[in-house]
Each structure stands twice: as C-alpha cells, then as structure tokens.
Design a protein around this nucleic acid. Structure first.
Lengths: 238, 238
DNA sequence: CGTATGCTTGAATCACGTCAACTGATGTGG
DNA sequence: CCACATCAGTTGACGTGATTCAAGCATACG
C-alpha cells in the first residue's frame, strides 16, 4: 500500500488538509499487522508512533502476580496509536493487535522536526491525544459505575460511534472484528457473564453480535439502556 | 499569596527552571478555593487553566438519569488542572474541589502565546498531560480488575506516591484531606463497603485513616496486597 | 441543646464469578 | 472421508463479594 492512498479518517479529520499532507509525507512505511501481534511491550523504549489505517488495537495492563490481563483501551481505524508515546517514550502497558490490521509508521525524530516547524500541528496532535484521554475517563466511569448489561451496551454504542467517525457505514449493523472474550476483558467481566448479557440484549430486541458483525435492532432503546452520550467522543474544538 | 512564591512541585518539576519562570510570569493570579467549589461544569467553555498549589481537586462524571456521581480523577498539589482544557476547550465532566485549595490561574490566550514561542515548552506540558492519561488508564484498570480491598489499598498507595512527588513527607503517615465517601466514589464502591475495607486494612496491620491523616503501619505489606507499581506515575522522559 | 455529617455494624439480597459440562463450527492429519 | 482437537459461545448450579436497607454512635456545629 502506498502512503499517498492514506485517507483522512476518524480523529485525523481534526487536521487541516495541509497538516495532513505534512504528516503523511513523513510517514516511513505502511505495514500489515497480523492478529494478536504485540506491537510494543511495557517498559520498552519506543522510537516510532503509528497511525491505525485498518483493524483494531488494544492496550493491556498485566500484573504478573495475578496474571490478569485487563484491556484498558481500544483503538479503531483512524486513531493515532502511541502518538502520545512520542513525548512519553516508555509505556506502562502492552499494545496488541485485536485483529488483522494495517498501520502507518512514523519516526519520532522526524515527528519532532515537523512539530518544531509547526506549533499549530503539535497542538492539534496534542488535542487528539486528549480525546483519547476523554475516552479513557469514560472507560474508568463505565467500569466503576455501570452494571454489566448497560456497560456492554455502552461499549457497543461507543464502538459504533467511533467507527462511524472512521467513515464506516453503521446504520443497522457494523463490522466489529472482536469477540465476546474481548468485551469481557474490556469491562472486567467473565466471559460467561458477557455471554448471558449478550443473550439478554438479543432477546430484549436491542442488538446482537455474531461472528464479526453487530446487528442493531433498536438503536434508540439500545442507547437508552446504555446511557449513551456522545460528548466525550467528539468534543468541539471551539 | 504572591506568584513569585510559587514552588516547583510535583509534575511541574519536569519543566526546566527557565520554562517554569516563563510559565509563572504569565500567571494571572493565585486564588483560594473553598472546599466543594465547582470550578468548571460539563460542557461550559473554558478560557482559563489552573495549577494546583494546595489541596485536592476531583473530576466527576454524572448522568442525570441515574444521578450517580462518579469520581474519575483526582489532582494533588503540583498538578496542572485543565491544562488539557487548553486545546480541548470543553470538558465532559465537572471539576470540583475536594478540600480547601489554592490555585494559580492561567489565561488560554497568554498560554497560546508562550507556547507559540517555545515548542519545547508546549511539548513538555503535553508530556505532563500524558502522565495524567497514564494514571487514568490505571484507574480504569483498578476499577475493572481489582477487588475492593486491594483497590482501596492501591488508591492509597497512589496518593502516597503522588504526594511524595509533591514534596510532602509521607514516611509513616501523610495528610489526605478526603473522606471514606470520596474513596467510595473513586472506586465505584458503597460507603458501607469502604468502611468495612478500611476496618480490614486497620485490623490487618496495613494502614489506618482518621480524620485527614493516613497512618502507614506496614508499607511493604500494604504495597503487596495493593499490587502497587510506580511505573505509571513516573515514566522516564528518556 | 438538637441536628447535621461521617463512620460503623448487621441482616437480607443480588449481581457476578467460578466450575463444569455441552454445543457447534472450524481445522488437521491419517 | 472420518477421528480428533480446538476454540468461541452457551447454559446450569453454586458460591461469594458487594449492595442495600436499617439502625446506631460519635463528633462537630448552629
């Protein structure tokens, strides 16, 4: 895949066309990533950042003692993966692909150069990492304050909304190449309980998930039990 | 209080002395904030950012339907409050003081000017907001993956560590001007259960909390049951 | 004084985890 | 083609961690 074919999708739409071109020009390469690939491990020093072109990525925090893997964040197409690694250098978690994916690679040194020349671009990218932070706060909220059924419903609504931003058609159904066990890891629930919740959502006429496709049966009612709000996903820039 | 008395504490220590001076020079004023003051409400447009000189601040997400207030983040002295509001402008949550506090106020327009002149400073402040994000990921983890007792223990360890960074003496005890109900809001637990957990921590010889002081009885064992790790609080810059 | 406010404790209930067994789809090698 | 393994999902029985409701107790405060 040629880097000139890179489309401005998802969060990257916050950039002006010129800024986007500046960024794309310094893209090192575009590489395919198979499912379940560990892209970076906790504590190792990073020198590259990624733009997620296709597929899903997950951030996992693991404590060796308990061996519990907790999924604390998911990136969808159009997200910048580890652009915050650029100033942070070392991360406290692992980044693993949740599906076959495709990523555009950026070198930190090159990024530093273009940011030096364009404070506005630096600020905009900063802004985008802050939307991630906003989503992260919501994940904190969801895990602490919501019961299993509304939580799962809420997560599905979030995915739908974010994939919509990424330009995918999500009217009555959408592709979601992750499985129940992944939802369980994201919400801190057991797979068995997620299975029961999915049955309730199905039988309640809200939505259903089979293979890699989520079918929305009644969006209004789904968003209602999910207590879904969009403000944390798309804060206005002005 | 005069702004020339502002000490470089906590996260602000990531700035060089010159950067710190640049920032302090553009501080508008230093104002006292009484306990339980709402500094900014969800959705309202912000034109100022704050540096927390003294006291504690909390970020609350509330859904009107359920009326459940969830505490998703806490700021300690030395933290920049809403510096990320600078590019974000509107927040998805409320910011409320958890104790009597003192804040230094910065105007966004002035900030924009000094960032325009110093990309490096912009980058460093960005870096600091990313440590917040790292903490946020850990809160997501704690809420999803940890049981009540280790979770509370972990939160107390986090406060201890962060207050240590802020230059407070926290050898065998430290000031923590928040109450059990606040811990409950932070961990998504009921006040009654937090009370029981605190009793277990006390009787187990780990730590105890009375009024506004946390007494550490056995730090090693406390950090052990808390599964405490410091990496998410102080990532290295290089 | 009485009345909040913060903490504590007990008993009943419930949401969710754990364990175990089973299904169906997919794949693999003989 | 069949025997077998694997993996995602499902279901039931049971245990438990945490909530809820209710009451009581201490301290601070108008």
């Amino acid at each position: 895949m040629d880097k000139n074919n890179l489309n401005q999708i998802g969060l990257s739409r916050h950039l002006t066309p010129q800024q986007w071109r500046t960024l794309v020009d310094c893209c090192e390469s575009i590489v395919p990533v198979p499912n379940k690939t560990t892209l970076s491990e906790r504590g190792t020093k990073l020198s590259k950042s990624l733009f997620l072109v296709e597929g899903f990525m997950g951030r996992f925090i693991t404590y060796d003692v308990t061996d519990r893997k907790q999924l604390v964040a998911v990136e969808v197409p159009g997200d910048f993966v580890d652009f915050h690694a650029y100033p942070l250098k070392r991360l406290d978690h692992d980044v693993v692909s949740l599906s076959d994916a495709k990523v555009a690679v950026f070198d930190h040194v090159v990024l530093q150069e273009i940011f030096d020349q364009d404070v506005e671009l630096c600020r905009t990218v900063w802004f985008m990492t802050l939307i991630d932070a906003s989503i992260q706060r919501h994940w904190t909220y969801r895990n602490a304050a919501m019961r299993a059924l509304p939580a799962i419903a809420n997560l599905l609504c979030e995915f739908r909304q974010r994939l919509m931003h990424a330009g995918m058609d999500t009217d009555s159904s959408f592709e979601l190449p992750i499985q129940q066990s992944t939802l369980a890891l994201a919400c801190g629930l057991s797979v068995e309980h997620v299975s029961r919740v999915m049955r309730d959502l199905r039988e309640g006429g809200y939505c259903s998930m089979s293979n890699t496709v989520v079918q929305i049966h009644d969006l209004r009612r789904l968003e209602e039990i999910a207590q879904f709000r969009t403000d944390y996903l798309c804060p206005s820039h002005d």
